[in-house]
Simulated scan of single mutants.
Amino acid sequence: MSQTSETVLEIDLSALEHNYNYLRSKLSPETKMLGVVKAFAYGNDSVEIAKRLSKIGIDYFAVAYTREGISLREGGIQKPILVLHPQSTNFEEVIENDLIPNIYSKFTLEAFVKTAEKLQLKNYPIHLKINTGLNRLGFDPEDAAWLNHKLAETKAIKVEGIFSHLAASEDEAEREFTLYQIENYQKTLDKILPKLDDQPIRHLCNTSGIINYPEAHYDMVRTGIGLYGFGNSAAEDKKLKPVGTLKTIISQIHHIKEGESVGYNRVFKAPLATKTATLPLGHADGINRIYGKQKTGVLVNGQIAPIIGNVCMDMLMIDISGIDCQEGDEVILFGKDKSAEEFAHNAGTISYELITSISQRVKRKIIN
């Protein structure tokens, strides 16, 4: 990767391809893979990520909201796109853009059927979500009889997929609960599948499910965080490659005397003479205030420099005492040489939150 002269998020598509191939190696040849590209592909670039995944063989995509699916279609993506959390007000847009809605409640099923029948559709594909214990979205298993009745009443839609979502597949201490979810999912399938004309795509596993529960891969698996280089464990992280590297530069260096303060509210007061650097990014760029007050650090010429004081909207300050550097030098916040998981963990959060928070004003640079 090249040296930068500005704040930039470098997106390494060769790392994406590596992660895809690693996760694909965990699957049987007949098992499909769905790539989750919601939230700008976890803070990267959803269209560029989807284009590369399409090229190397991904079968399916998923986004959270209708607008995200439309953006992929406008970017030329032709693979099936599942909208995980559609709102009924957007159902006509879903249909106009050949998107596949996740139907997760009695309300959404009735509303989508009404829209599909109004448009005189036949066998429009939908996926049904079953709530097996995450208690976020989904039909309860007890709704199976109601579902069977409603589905039999219309020809406007067709159940192309039935899925659920594991709550703690990365946590060995919650293995019993995960096995309960798998069993609950299968029992619900057993109530619905005999009533359908065609076998739908069954999918349950997320990234950690792919790795830890091969017996539950079913017809398709879904992977989000794994594609971007994180396996929810230190051992798996070593087998994956971070796709995004957030870089910036040193704007200015200050020599702070003992007792002088740095930044808003004078949160940092130098216990002794200190050399600091100001960087041109802040909480408006996604590096939130939780990362300040020396909770975590950045990489300057191979050495860790803690973030000091309060993170500002457009700037943050670091302690570079003892580090040989100068104005204009490159600084790495996270990437291949400094894990986003470590950066986030030190501040009490997770890599998901950090990488999806990088704002759209940060320049994206596609490499490889």
Rank of each mutant, 00 (worst) to 15 (best):
S25F: 07
K129P: 08
R67C: 08
N44T: 14
K122I: 15
F107H: 12
A216W: 00
G297C: 06
I126E: 04
L82T: 07
G322S: 10
I210H: 00
S169T: 08
K51V: 05
A277H: 06
L272C: 06
Y264Q: 11
A116V: 12
G244D: 09
S261Q: 07
S164H: 04
S251Q: 14
A39K: 08
I211M: 14
L227F: 11
P194H: 02
D337Y: 12
T108I: 10
K338I: 05
S164V: 08
Y124P: 11
M1F: 11
T278Y: 09
H283P: 02
T349A: 04
P86N: 11
R361P: 06
D197G: 14
L84W: 10
P101M: 10
Y218F: 15
S5K: 14
T274M: 06
S2D: 13
N123K: 15
P242W: 00
Y218K: 10
F177D: 12
S339T: 04
G35F: 03
M313P: 05
I182R: 01
N148D: 06
N265Y: 11
G302R: 05
R222C: 10
L82D: 07
V331I: 09
L196I: 03
K122L: 13
E160A: 14
T356D: 01
H254Y: 13
Y264V: 12
I201N: 07
T278D: 08
T31M: 02
E93Y: 06
S321Q: 08
L179T: 00
I49L: 01
P125T: 04
F40A: 15
D140Y: 06
